[in-house]
Simulated scan of single mutants.
Amino acid sequence: MGQRRSPLGVPELELLAARGWQALEEERLGDWLLRAGGGFTGRANSALVVGDPGVPLPEAVAAVARWYDERGLRPAAQLPGVQSRRADAAFDAAGWTRDEDVLVLTAPLGRPAEPAVPVDLSPTPDDAWLAGYRHQGAALPPVARRVLTSAPDVVFASVRLAPEPAPLAAVARGALTDGWLGVTAVTVAEEHRRRGLATAVMAALGRWAAERGAHSVYLQVTAGNAPARALYRQAGFIEHHRYHYRRGPA
């Protein structure tokens, strides 16, 4: 691990993370960032609620709902940290439902150890990688490849333990933004879990980022994912903040 730097504030880190997982369409509502990505992932299809929307909160909530309705998407908002409580109350008052907490974890990035197994790194995800990453247990939609590759500096890690056409054992995605490595899409095939493969792909991504001058790493994990939280805690990650989604009436 490297020396821990002064952390970014919640809005700054969330805006940085938004650049590491970019939507296909973005528009500002004051300081809020409206994002649409064909319905693939909450992050790429929600309004990032940071700062001042420039209008009264009930009007901002209505404007967000209209923006997503116009695109045929269920309205959604991402509400990070304690600074979003007033906005959260406005979405609640409008009948938007609340999802579970997501933890944003950070750690300094030193020179990670050599991965315990060979990890392949590629600037684009091939079909095997896409098949290995099952977002929330489901096969990926066609738009997924565009969202996954929308950020300017990304890499895709994969572990193969058996020759093709056997599926990959583990995959992950890294995005480098202003010295921060964002780790996403960490997926280990069920039959290969508890063998250190998640640690291996994260080490490979860390080495890739360190060679490019990265100093810190962030990732997100749902509050209910106890095994992943334990893995990241052992790796030295600490909680930076939490966020949750609010979703408008379907």
Rank of each mutant, 00 (worst) to 15 (best):
V221W: 02
T149F: 05
G182E: 07
A214R: 09
I238G: 14
A169T: 11
W180D: 04
A162Y: 04
A162N: 12
A214G: 11
V117W: 02
A209W: 04
R146W: 10
Q220D: 13
G174H: 11
A209R: 13
G196Q: 15
Q220G: 15
G110H: 14
P108T: 14
L148M: 08
Y133A: 10
V188D: 03
A107V: 12
L181D: 13
G137I: 13
T124C: 09
G236R: 01
G182M: 08
L176A: 03
W208E: 04
A107N: 14
E164W: 04
P118Q: 02
E191N: 08
P108H: 12
V155G: 09
L130V: 00
T222A: 15
T184N: 01
S150V: 07
A198H: 02
A198D: 02
A107I: 08
P152N: 10
A210W: 13
T184H: 14
A128P: 03
L205Y: 00
A228C: 08
D127L: 07
L197F: 03
L176M: 02
T199N: 12
R194S: 09
G110W: 13
W129H: 04
Y218A: 00
L140R: 13
R207Y: 09
V159C: 09
L140S: 12
Q136T: 10
S122P: 10
G132D: 04
E114F: 06
V183R: 05
V117K: 01
P227V: 07
P167T: 10
A203Q: 15
A175G: 11
R111E: 15
A204T: 07
G224P: 03
R207S: 04
Y232E: 10
L130N: 01
S122F: 05
A116R: 14
W129N: 06
V188I: 12
G179K: 07
E114M: 15
G213E: 12
R229V: 12
L181I: 10
T124S: 15
V201I: 08
V119Y: 07
A107P: 13
T199I: 11
V217T: 06
Q136V: 15
G179T: 14
G174F: 06
L121C: 04
P125I: 03
R207Q: 07
V221C: 05
D126Q: 01
A230V: 04
R193S: 05
A107Q: 14
D126Y: 00
F156N: 09
A175P: 07
E191L: 02
H135T: 04
A116V: 14
R173S: 11
A166M: 08
A189N: 09
R195I: 09
V143G: 11
V119M: 15
Y218I: 00
E211K: 08
A116M: 14
D120K: 00
A172G: 03
R145Y: 02
Y232N: 06
V186I: 13
A144V: 06
R195M: 12
R160Q: 09
E190F: 11
E114K: 07
P112S: 05
A223P: 06
A204I: 04
V217G: 00
